[in-house]
């Protein structure tokens, strides 16, 4: 089986501190891979590194058979490595549908000439894809609303839908469930596995252990920038190293989940203050 994404010794250094420390990780094509870890473990930094938002100091990332180290963020996105953001990073002046269309249509610089004469044609396949993305995230009823008119949770879903509309080969979901209410969380969780049927692989970061354990085929655990464990959900559930990283030696699984939830809430409120 081939891997859509592979990192070898990927290292990101912030002023002497290794936020990601020689991370070796692989996402097999067509699989659902999760990455979990406590706050500050370097999960988002890892996504930032492979999508080109922070420079790596060592190691490389291979996407779809090509080393992507030299590519700019938008080039990586165009090649099918599409991410979502933990914080809301929507285009607030565009409607929900336009947010998706921006990501869905490829553009050449001379498109503006066709645009000025209102000649650019709608691509049927792309429009269908956008509709599918809106549908799967339950955003049909608000497709012409502005993102600022939606609840926080639904705005996060817009972010996921935007990534889906870009026709990713691998979609990197950065805590998509954080800040969602129960209903929204279920919408998301219920559809995550469906992504795999649309020619894409999924890489998920989340604090919600329950979600990660239930949807992933394979899970990596990150702590202090290092991979401390990897395996199937069952193996991770049993792993002593994981328990140690999360709660110390003796903790049980339920506490793991609860602790995680509390952390994620704290994390959310902490972020809002930024």
């Amino acid at each position: 089986m081939t891997n859509i994404l592979e990192t070898n010794d990927l290292t990101v250094t912030f002023g002497g501190l290794n936020a990601c420390d020689h991370v070796d990780l692989a996402v097999p094509t067509g699989k659902f891979v999760g990455l979990i870890g406590p706050n500050g473990a370097g999960k988002t930094t890892f996504i930032d590194a492979i999508t080109g938002y922070v420079p790596t100091s060592d190691g490389n990332a291979v996407f779809d058979g090509n080393d992507i180290g030299e590519l700019k963020p938008h080039e990586r996105a165009q090649s099918g490595l599409v991410r979502t953001f933990q914080s809301l990073e929507l285009f607030e002046d565009l409607t929900v549908r336009d947010n998706l269309l921006v990501a869905a249509y490829p553009t050449r610089w001379y498109t503006f000439i066709a645009d000025m004469f209102h000649l650019s044609r709608q691509d049927k396949e792309i429009e269908e894809r956008v509709n599918w993305a809106l549908n799967i995230m339950g955003l049909n009823d608000v497709s012409d609303s502005m993102p600022t008119d939606l609840s926080h949770g639904r705005r996060k879903l817009v972010g996921v839908a935007r990534a889906l509309a870009a026709k990713p080969k691998l979609i990197l979901l950065d805590e998509p469930a954080a800040g969602l209410d129960t209903a929204e969380s279920q919408t998301l969780g219920g559809h995550l596995r469906e992504f795999l049927n649309h020619d894409m692989s999924v890489f998920l970061i989340d604090h919600d252990m329950g979600l990660v354990l239930s949807v992933c085929d394979f899970i990596y655990v990150l702590d202090f920038g290092k991979i401390i464990a990897s395996g199937t959900p069952t193996e991770i559930r049993e792993s002593a190293a994981v328990k140690a990283a999360y709660l110390g030696e003796e903790a049980g699984e339920i506490q793991v989940q609860e602790g995680e939830r509390m952390r994620s809430q704290q994390h959310e409120s902490g972020e809002d203050n930024d």
Partner: peptide
């Protein structure tokens, strides 16, 4: 058109625009 959407996306958020 498409270019207009892209311009507004950049105006709103350059980081996210690159990700799109």
């Amino acid at each position: 058109g498409q270019i207009g959407r892209r311009f507004l996306a950049i105006r709103a958020n350059e980081r996210a625009a690159a990700a799109a």
